[in-house]
Design a protein around this nucleic acid. Structure first.
Lengths: 130, 130
DNA sequence: AGAGTGCTTGACGTTAACGTAAATGTAACG
DNA sequence: CGTTACATTTACGTTAACGTCAAGCACTCT
């Protein structure tokens, strides 16, 4: 069984992040490692939170979004209103992502058309400028 | 027929940008308006370039990318090697956009799964942390 | 004790594309 | 000539998520 307390380096190796990142997350109040004198010791709790953080980032949430979600979660995991709030946050983010994808689709289609048509951006751009 | 020379405000109204933006583009050498004393006067040429700039932005090109493309275009619109170069830039950008869309698709799918499964991000995040 | 290794806390740097504010100019109107 | 309405330059501010030193402590090995 993996030790309950991990040094910053062990954390970095385990999660593929830099020490700077972990300290940054602590400064932003996303993590709260214990101290052994001056050194940080990360608990299971920190590891769980870090997983959530990295997962949230993959979803495109900002660190601030993530912090809010984690705070709600820690304050009272069973509070219905807060769960709803988080749900709404996720829904909102999902809508953003889908809108972004739609824009991207349009841009990709247009750019492909340029390439297919003129054989070069320039030609496409010139036509667009008429 | 619309006058050949336009003030900064006319440009802003016509293209829905701010004066700051036009001055910024000039500073970045994307536009080269004439001067009437101290005031800028934008020519048809500037308008054509601005259209290209805004179009490039929709494609997700950086201003620096756009500047390079415009420079090649102005220097010699018929130079084959330069046309090829621009073509490659566009291809590269297209590849980036498609990669980005792929990532977005994965994230959207995952996030949807979370929402469908647990009814809340928190639940999803908790399962992920186990 | 000296060397090496790893950890710590500052604190400034990076990137893009402008926003915003301050001080000044100047053209036209009445 | 005074006011109004835009224009100009200069230059610092913004945002996110860290990167990159710099200087120094803490422990261990020899």
């Amino acid at each position: 069984m993996t030790n309950d307390l991990m040094t910053i380096r062990q954390m970095c190796d385990a999660f593929d992040v830099t020490p700077r990142t972990l300290r940054f997350y602590e400064a932003k109040e996303l993590l709260f490692p214990q101290r052994d004198g001056t050194r940080r010791l990360f608990t299971r709790h920190d590891r769980a939170r870090l997983k959530l953080i990295l997962r949230g980032k993959r979803f495109g949430f900002s660190l601030e979004d993530i912090r809010q979600i984690l705070d709600l979660y820690d304050r009272d995991g069973s509070n219905h209103a807060q769960t709803i709030r988080t749900y709404e946050l996720a829904q909102h983010r999902l809508a953003q992502m889908e809108a972004q994808r739609a824009e991207l689709d349009v841009a990709i289609t247009e750019l492909k058309a340029e390439l297919d048509a003129g054989g070069a951006m320039i030609a496409g751009l010139r036509r667009a400028a008429e």
